[in-house]
């Protein structure tokens, strides 16, 4: 089974992303939404965590939440896929279940 994990907290504020990555099986999809999108910015001090885990997980970030926070898609870590809400729905539909790391 493939799971979708969503994270909505900035890695600068809480450990939700760490916690998610410590319990998400290889092959899982991880979607960053709301304040978690700040963790998708290349060169942020937490970016290495995501870069180092790219062989285990496929990462996604919600575009509307990036835009709302003034983050240019061009500054997102290479290999992190930007999706819109329709893409979010597709991720939920194409995986077997979803866990929200709040």
């Amino acid at each position: 089974m493939t799971m979708l994990h969503t994270v909505n907290k900035s890695p600068f504020e809480r450990n939700a992303l760490d916690s998610c990555m410590s319990m998400a099986n290889k092959g899982s999809k991880i979607l960053l939404i709301e304040d978690a999108v700040v963790g998708a910015v290349d060169k942020n001090t937490h970016a290495e965590k995501i870069k180092g885990a790219m062989s285990d997980y496929t990462f996604y970030v919600l575009g509307p939440d990036l835009q709302a926070r003034g983050i240019d898609e061009g500054n997102v870590i290479d290999g992190v896929n930007v999706v819109d809400y329709a893409g979010y729905v597709d991720l939920v539909a194409e995986t077997d279940n979803v866990q929200s790391w709040l």
Binding site: M3, N25, D96, Q99
Partner: peptide, 16 residues
């Protein structure tokens, strides 16, 4: 946590 991860993968509904 890796054992819990396997269990989580096997669920129909995960509520957090």
């Amino acid at each position: 946590k890796s054992e819990i991860a396997d269990l989580m993968d096997d669920q129909d509904v995960v509520l957090s």
